[in-house]
C-alpha cells in the first residue's frame, strides 16, 4: 500500500469515528448508512468503469438481487441472514457471469446495453411477483434484523459502524488490488485493449473478474439494504438508480476509488439535504453532471476542478509577471482521447 493511500485510510477512519459525536442524530446517521451502502456499490463500479474502462448500467439489478435474495430467503424460507447473504451473493455472481461472459468479449456499447436490459429484467420480474415470492409492486416485509458477532444491528449507530467498516474493508482490498499486477492489467485495458492483449493480458478474463466483483459488491449492499430497511419492493431498484450510481462514480472521477466514495457521499448527502429540490430536478441534475463532467472534467469533479483551478491560477500569475512570456504551457488534454 502506498503511503498516500495509507494516510487516506487513517484519515477516513478517524473521520468516521468522529462523525457520530457531532451528528449523533439517527436521521443524519441514516443518511450516512445510505452513503455507505451506495459507496459499496460505487467502489465496485469504479473498479469496473475507471480501471477497466467498461460501463455497467445494471448495478441496480445486482443490488436488487442481493436485497430480494436475502429478503426472500430469510422472510419466506427461514434462512439465517448470513447464509442467506451468501446464497444471494453466489446466485448474483452466477447471473453476472451469464450476462458478462458473452458480452464482455464485445465492444463497449453492447455490454452497456446488456447490463441495462438485465437490470430492467430484474425489475420486471420483481414487479411481476413470480410464484408469489416477491410480493409484486407492493413488495413484502418481515425481513429480520442482521446481527454481527451476536450483536444485533438494531439502531442507526450500529448500522453506521457496520456498513462503514465493511466499506473500509473493501476499500482496503480494492486499493491493494489496483496497485498490483492485476490492477495494472485492468488499467492497461482502459489504456488500450489491443496493446494490453499484445502484452499478454487476458483482457476478457480480467474484465469478467472486475465485473463479477462489482456485481458481488452490489449484491452485498443489497443484502444489507434488505436487513436495514426490513422491507423490499421493486421501486427503488429502477433504471434511474443504475444511472444515478454511474453519476456518483463519475462525479468523483471514474479512475479513483477515493473519488467514488467522495462522489457517493456528496451526492447522497445533497439528495437528502435538498430533498424537495431533487424531487423535481434530480434528472436534470444527474444529466447535467454526466454531460458536463464528461466534457470538461474527465478526471472527475474534484481532481478535474482542482487542475483547472491550478491552471487558472498559474495563468493569472503568468499574466502578472509578463516578463516571462510563454512560461505556462498547461496540458489540458483529455487522457482518454488517446484510447
Amino acid at each position: 500500500m502506498s503511503k498516500k493511500n495509507l494516510i487516506g485510510l487513517i484519515v477516513l477512519i478517524a473521520f468516521l469515528l468522529v462523525i457520530p459525536r457531532f451528528f449523533g442524530n439517527p436521521y443524519y446517521l441514516g443518511v450516512l448508512v445510505w452513503s455507505g451502502l451506495y459507496s459499496l456499490i460505487c467502489m465496485g463500479l469504479s473498479l469496473f468503469m475507471g480501471y477497466c474502462g467498461q460501463i455497467s448500467l445494471g448495478q441496480a439489478g445486482f443490488y436488487a438481487l442481493g436485497a430480494y435474495g436475502s429478503g426472500i430467503l430469510t422472510a419466506r424460507f427461514g434462512f439465517e441472514p448470513w447464509p442467506a447473504l451468501a446464497v444471494a451473493l453466489v446466485a448474483c455472481v452466477i447471473l453476472a457471469l451469464g450476462v458478462g461472459l458473452p458480452t464482455l468479449r464485445l465492444k463497449g456499447h453492447y455490454l452497456a446495453m446488456a447490463t441495462l436490459g438485465f437490470g430492467v429484467i430484474i425489475y420486471v420480474v420483481a414487479d411481476a411477483d413470480p410464484f408469489g415470492l416477491t410480493g409484486g409492486p407492493s413488495g413484502f416485509s418481515g425481513i429480520p434484523k442482521l446481527s454481527v458477532f451476536g450483536l444485533a444491528l438494531n439502531d442507526e449507530l450500529r448500522w453506521y459502524y457496520f456498513v462503514w467498516a465493511t466499506v473500509l474493508i473493501f476499500l482496503f482490498f480494492l486499493l491493494n488490488l489496483v496497485n498490483s499486477r492485476v490492477g495494472r492489467a485492468l488499467r492497461s485495458i482502459h489504456g488500450g485493449e489491443t496493446a494490453a492483449k499484445a502484452m499478454g493480458v487476458n483482457v476478457a478474463k480480467y474484465k469478467t473478474q472486475a465485473f463479477l466483483l462489482s456485481a458481488a459488491m452490489a449484491s452485498v449492499a443489497g443484502s444489507f439494504y434488505a436487513h436495514y430497511v426490513g422491507f423490499v419492493n421493486p421501486e427503488p431498484f429502477n433504471l434511474e438508480l443504475s444511472i444515478h450510481l454511474v453519476t456518483m462514480v463519475v462525479i468523483g472521477g471514474v479512475t479513483n476509488l477515493w473519488g467514488a466514495i467522495a462522489g457517493t457521499v456528496l451526492l447522497t448527502v445533497l439528495t437528502e439535504g435538498f430533498r424537495t429540490f431533487f424531487k423535481e430536478y434530480r434528472l436534470l441534475f444527474d444529466g447535467l453532471i454526466l454531460v458536463v463532467i464528461m466534457l470538461l472534467f474527465a478526471e472527475g469533479l474534484f481532481l478535474g476542478a482542482a487542475k483547472k483551478v491550478a491552471a487558472l491560477v498559474a495563468r493569472a500569475s503568468c499574466l502578472r509577471s509578463r516578463r516571462r512570456p510563454g512560461a505556462s504551457t498547461h496540458s489540458t488534454g483529455n487522457p482518454e482521447a488517446a484510447s
Binding site: M49, G53, Q54, I55, L57, K107, G108, H109, A112, I243, V246, V250, V254, D286, G287, L288, I289, L290, V291, M294, L295, A298, N334, E336, A337, S339
Partner: peptide, 13 residues
C-alpha cells in the same frame, strides 16, 4: 474524439 465510455455517458446524460 472522446472514448467510448465517455460518449456512452454523454448520451445517457
Amino acid at each position: 474524439n472522446g472514448s467510448v465510455i465517455s460518449l456512452i455517458m454523454i448520451t445517457i446524460g
